[in-house]
């Protein structure tokens, strides 16, 4: 084993080979032999028609679901041969969904702390970290409010803070601007891009809007559960 390959394999964060996933007893082939490599620190957008398997792919990367066939390695972990994936989800990934999915009876600050309950941090450390993150998404004056009192854009910023709180190596965003108006959506996209640059976190974002997709360094087009196109930004 030479030094060259060693270095290379360390840069590959997500390594997917011939991944297959079907639903409804094989009737629906959501992923149909998909191959994909993503390097650490990349900003990749996934685009494709509705039902093409984008969310399924993202869920596989985040270990929310288990594939039927093939192999998937993320951050050095073989996801198809690991029993308890909660540790992986807690340490390596942060999800941002189309809907914010915040817990309505908890304050903004408490919502951001939820993922840290799996860690060994003290409640003081948790609160400090959550406060700092909420400040960085410009919500320091809303920390004690309930999510229902916030606007759609504010809620999505809380969700982003929640995704970042355990310092993941990958942010997985599934149509994060899908339920926002375009102006608010742009603010969220800028925020995600900003985080990607500053924190050097790998960002994988699903979208069905080409103009959103082209913000990324690399755009992958999925169709019928396979990669149809894989283009790097030219400039």
């Amino acid at each position: 084993m030479n030094n060259e390959t060693n270095k290379d394999s360390r840069k590959i964060l997500i390594d997917i080979k011939n991944l297959k996933k079907s639903y409804e007893n094989g009737q629906i082939k959501a992923l149909n032999g998909l191959d994909l490599e993503i390097q650490r620190g990349e900003f990749v957008s996934i685009i494709g028609p509705s039902g093409s398997g984008k969310s399924t792919l993202l869920n596989m990367i985040g270990a929310l679901d288990v594939a039927d066939e093939g192999s998937i390695n993320v951050a050095g972990i073989d996801l198809l041969n690991t029993k308890d994936l909660s540790k992986f989800r807690s340490e390596e990934v942060g999800f941002v969904f189309q809907l914010h999915n915040l817990i309505p009876n908890l304050s903004v600050l408490e919502n951001v702390q939820i993922p840290m309950l799996e860690t060994s941090l003290s409640s003081k450390e948790m609160e400090e970290r959550a406060c700092k993150l909420l400040k960085s998404v410009d919500l320091e004056d809303k920390i004690n409010q309930k999510p229902t009192k916030l606007s759609g854009g504010e809620r999505q910023r809380v969700a982003i803070a929640r995704a970042l709180v355990n310092h993941p190596s990958i942010i997985l965003a599934d149509e994060p601007t899908g339920s926002l108006d375009s102006k608010t959506g742009d603010i969220i996209l800028d925020l995600l891009k900003d985080i990607h640059q500053k924190e050097n976190v790998t960002l994988v974002m699903v979208t069905h809007e080409p103009y959103v997709a082209q913000m990324a360094d690399r755009t992958i087009t999925v169709r019928d559960g396979k990669i149809q196109e894989d283009t790097m930004k030219s400039n």
């Binding site: 929310l64 909660s86 992986f88 989800r89 999800f95 999915n101 817990i103 939820i114 929640r162």
Partner: peptide, 13 residues
Amino acid sequence: REIGVLKAVGWRS
């Protein structure tokens, strides 16, 4: 949905 989120953020079963 909320329980799904808790799993997504890494809560153990």
